[in-house]
């Protein structure tokens, strides 16, 4: 197994609430790992630790052996250039146009001329199937278009690792399907390593090469999609059956 990122015994609490209770996970190079779990199980918090938005109370996030939880900000900024991230609500800059949004990482970090940046941005916008809307602002776009633009922005630097935070939440089933196809297609075509979190079984099975299920701050199952479907863990069975009856209780 060619491991790119290894997460070791990650712990995180907010006040008296313990959210991550010792997460261990290996993320394979070039594969799409999907982390599945009910809302509030800690998967968003976990994803934010991979990219350094949160610091753990204990544990390590090793990218090719380098512990990302301990590096200084300047070094982290170098490492972050290898990452792209698709946010749940797109997190587009609303003061910028579509083209400026997609071009932002290139403008900040590349030495390309404005013409070359324009060309690369056009190519990425075509890749995500966005029609000619470069001069519009994010507030003028539909939810699906915003997600596409956010994906174009996440891919514009040709990152090695792309993180997807609930890529289909809040979209209608048809647009969700389109976005899932798009994510899968771009990941396979560009060959980057993907980590997605979702609570949707459909999204999970459409995207995943590896499935990890998180429950109550821990990874309780980590396997292939087939292995996941065949899992005998009662919590996995309950999730697959999509029922409220079972060992997973929703905290009121």
């Amino acid at each position: 197994m060619d491991v790119l990122i290894e997460i070791r015994d990650l712990h995180k609490s907010f006040g008296s609430q313990e959210v991550l209770k010792g997460v261990n996970l290996m993320i394979e190079r070039g594969k799409m790992t999907v982390i599945l779990g009910v809302s509030g199980c800690g998967k968003s918090v976990f994803l934010k630790h991979i990219i350094g938005l949160l610091k753990p109370d204990a544990g390590e996030v090793l990218l090719e052996g380098e512990d990302l939880t301990k590096v200084k900000e300047v070094r982290m900024n170098q490492i972050l250039k290898r990452f792209g991230m698709l946010f749940q609500n797109a997190a587009l800059f609303d003061s910028m146009t579509v083209e400026e949004n997609a071009a932002f990482p290139l403008v900040e970090h590349s030495k390309f001329s404005p013409e070359e940046i324009h060309r690369i941005v056009q190519e990425k916008l075509r890749l995500v199937g966005l029609p000619k809307i470069e001069t519009k602002f994010p507030s003028e776009l539909s939810g699906g278009m915003r997600k596409r633009l956010a994906l174009a922005r996440a891919l514009v630097m040709d990152p090695e690792i792309v993180l997807y935070d609930e890529p289909t939440t809040g979209l209608d089933p048809i647009v969700s399907d389109v976005i899932e196809d798009l994510i899968r297609e771009t990941q396979q075509r560009l060959g980057h390593t993907g980590v997605a979190i979702t609570h949707s079984l459909k999204t999970c099975f459409k995207l995943a090469d590896r499935v990890a299920m998180m429950e109550d701050g821990k990874i309780i199952e980590f396997t292939t999609p087939e292995g996941f479907r065949a899992s005998t863990d009662p919590r996995v069975r309950q999730f697959l059956a999509s029922t409220s009856k079972g060992p997973i209780k929703i905290k009121e």
């Binding site: 938005l53 900024n77 609500n89």
Partner: peptide, 17 residues
């Protein structure tokens, strides 16, 4: 507003302080 809509986090993930 940028903070609560994750735009500040987005800056961080794009290696911009």
């Amino acid at each position: 507003t940028m903070r609560v809509t994750e735009q500040v986090d987005a800056l961080h993930t794009m290696a911009v302080s």
